[in-house]
């Protein structure tokens, strides 16, 4: 499946990246090559093969329902690019 410029633009919004005109052009070509290479997977017969999402077959791992100490608020907010004493600040979530 060939990658088009429109695909690259669409995916850049999905992935929240802002690409320059040249980046869009180069990525259309580069991703196109990589996807063409990856397309060889289609020749593998995978009928009846279960997908393998994990490298180990482990299941049922749980933690007990115990309250542990949370981070002090100053520490939680310390890395935030913008915050007030109560919380993280971002441009208006609605409108704008």
């Amino acid at each position: 499946m060939a990658i088009t410029r429109a695909d690259v633009e669409k995916v850049s919004l999905l992935a929240r990246l802002q690409l320059s005109e040249t980046e869009i052009e180069t990525l259309t070509v580069e991703l196109g090559k990589i996807v063409a290479y990856v397309d060889q997977l289609s020749e593998v017969d995978t009928d009846g093969v279960a997908p393998m999402a994990h490298a180990v077959e482990v299941s049922n791992v749980f933690a007990s329902d115990e309250v542990k100490t949370s981070l002090p608020r100053e520490q939680a907010l310390a890395n935030a690019p913008s915050h007030n004493p109560r919380g993280y600040l971002v441009p208006p979530v609605l409108g704008g």
Binding site: V61, F62, A63, S64, D65, E66, V67, K68, T69, S70, L71, R73, A76, L77, N79, R86, G87, Y88
Partner: peptide
Amino acid sequence: GCSTQFGAEPNTQTCPVCIGMPGSLPVMNR
């Protein structure tokens, strides 16, 4: 392990896992 208690002061019941800090990992509550 953060508390689910309602009504706490904002951002006082968080930790690296629920803030989604780099490197943190979730473990399922039984």
